[in-house]
């Protein structure tokens, strides 16, 4: 998490004013130092698309992008996101059009109960940005920090592969 801008937080305090851009929208909010990023998103911003699953850094249901990197937001403090950008599942859809990863999960039936889906999709978005043409094994490795307790991994892998294909075709101007 490389953050170039100087922090605005005051030093050695229990509460801090932070400036965070979530899905392109800037927020200036005062938070307790102990507020976890996932609680900040869900409770301060009322953005409940990011889920809390295990709360112990295992399941990845809370995955968001912090400055473009997929992280478990239950294991990052909100103050650490001061001056940073955060991307959540709510930001995937643009102008009523689903993101290719959402299309992929729709087309390939990539969800059953849906609890892990937001985290799965955010991990996949960051992964496909660095690896636009992944193998099945690479997809499986990439989502190895995200648990699906419906065990629907076969279709999740297909969904991510579907999105990769669509995104490649779009990039090549065929779509």
């Amino acid at each position: 998490m490389a953050v170039a801008t100087a922090p605005t937080t005051s030093r050695g305090q229990r509460t801090h004013k932070i400036h965070v851009t979530v899905n392109g929208v800037p927020h200036d909010v005062e938070v307790e130092a102990r507020t976890l990023l996932v609680h900040f998103l869900r409770e301060n911003l009322n953005m409940t698309g990011t889920h809390i699953g295990c709360d112990t850094t295992n399941c990845g249901a809370c995955t968001v992008l912090l400055n473009g990197r997929a992280v478990k937001s239950c294991t990052v403090f909100a103050v650490q996101a001061d001056q940073a950008t955060v991307a959540t599942v709510e930001g995937l859809e643009k102008d009523g059009k689903l993101h290719p990863i959402q299309e992929g999960f729709h087309q390939e039936h990539g969800l059953q109960c849906g609890f892990c889906t937001a985290g799965m999709m955010m991990t996949a978005v960051a992964f496909l940005a660095t690896n636009p043409k992944p193998t099945e094994l690479q997809i499986r490795e990439a989502i190895s920090g995200n648990l699906c307790r419906c065990t629907g991994y076969v279709n999740i892998v297909k969904s991510i592969d579907h999105a990769a294909r669509v995104m490649r075709e779009t990039a090549e101007g065929k779509a």
Binding site: T9, R11, Q13, R14, R34, V79
Partner: peptide, 21 residues
């Protein structure tokens, strides 16, 4: 789960971090 309350400071450089600690 929420951690116990604590104070938080961003270190500007290593010397600053040592001083804070």
């Amino acid at each position: 789960m929420i951690p116990a309350s604590f104070e938080y400071a961003v270190a500007r450089d290593v010397a600053d971090a040592i001083q804070l600690l």
